[in-house]
Write a protein that binds this DNA or RNA. Structure first.
Length: 275
DNA sequence: ACAGGATCCTGGGGGC
DNA sequence: TGCCCCCAGGATCCTG
């Protein structure tokens, strides 16, 4: 999916387009999403203004004046965009929220249907769900908490970074990029990782995500921002998707290995497992 | 308890 | 050209 930088970009794009606006109409596709939209929600989202929009991990939360929350996850191929109502609906568009005035729509499109939109009744139930699902945000991660999360497990670092309870928002791309920046091998075990390496890894995560947000995220295939613009961070990849190409640090060919069910790209020379 | 694999979907690319 | 297999930015459930 869109990982943290992509979701952050979408949230920033959508804010000026959606704040103080409200939905007047909603249409659904006949294909079920992983988290199916419940029929009774349709009437509940109409009429009340959108007061704020924020990101938590890879999730987006739209606060409605009624107190209800629209909670969005994009799965692997989700797109949430505001477009002119006059534009034809693209294939795989599953929810269309028409905005007041009727000229624009908020559209949720998701080819693989791994994502979805859920309506929560109030702030308390929304926060309970998010805090149960997610660990801390990378930008306010307590170093001791992170170190404990890494060192307490027998999983490899790649799996640790993909675990949303350890740090929220990192996915396959930014896990590979962070490990490369930190000079750590993706298959190194969490419990074999030193405290100094944890510090290095944490700074690498922050550095990589910050730069990726500046570039509006990475567009590999389906990702677009809230206004349909693509991202540019894919031009700065050091490891992800660069199998056989030279490591920008040492020129060694990048290799790929399958870990935690995901392809993991790394430099065999400058990302050596600690011995 | 924990780690790894299978699974939910569709589409695109490579190999034959 | 066509077909088949594998792969893809994620999260959850099941198994050993």
């Amino acid at each position: 999916m869109p990982e943290l930088p992509e979701v952050e970009t979408i949230v920033r794009d959508l804010r000026p387009l959606l704040i103080e606006r409200h939905f007047t109409h909603l249409t659904l596709s006949d294909q079920a999403l992983r988290q199916p939209w419940q029929p009774e929600w349709s009437a509940q989202v109409l009429g009340g203004a959108i007061q704020s929009i924020r990101r938590r991990g890879k999730w987006m939360i739209l606060n409605l004046a009624s107190g209800r929350r629209l909670v969005v996850h994009l799965g692997m191929t989700g797109q949430l965009t505001v477009t002119s109502s006059a534009l034809p609906l693209e294939d795989h568009t599953h929810l269309v929220f028409t905005l007041d005035g009727g000229l624009e729509q908020l559209r949720y499109r998701d080819i693989r249907r791994f994502g979805g939109i859920t309506l929560y009744a109030d702030e308390a139930t929304t926060e309970a769900f998010l805090n149960d699902t997610l660990g801390p945000e990378p930008f306010d991660l307590n170093p001791a908490t992170f170190q404990h999360g890494v060192q307490a497990t027998a999983r490899c670092l790649k799996a640790v970074l993909l675990d949303q309870h350890i740090v929220a928002g990192v996915g396959n791309i930014y896990a590979d990029e962070s490990l490369h920046t930190a000079c750590l091998h993706p298959s190194q075990l969490g419990r074999a990782t030193t405290s100094a390496e944890c510090v290095r890894l944490q700074s690498a995560i922050v550095e990589v995500l910050t730069r990726a947000i500046e570039r509006r995220g990475s567009s590999i295939r389906n990702y677009v921002g809230g206004s349909g613009l693509r991202g540019g961070y894919q031009e700065e990849f050091r490891a992800y998707g660069r199998t056989g190409q030279p490591c920008p640090r040492c020129d060694t060919a990048i290799e790929v290995v399958r870990l935690a069910g995901r392809s993991s790209h790394y430099c065999p020379r400058c990302q050596r497992t600690a011995s």
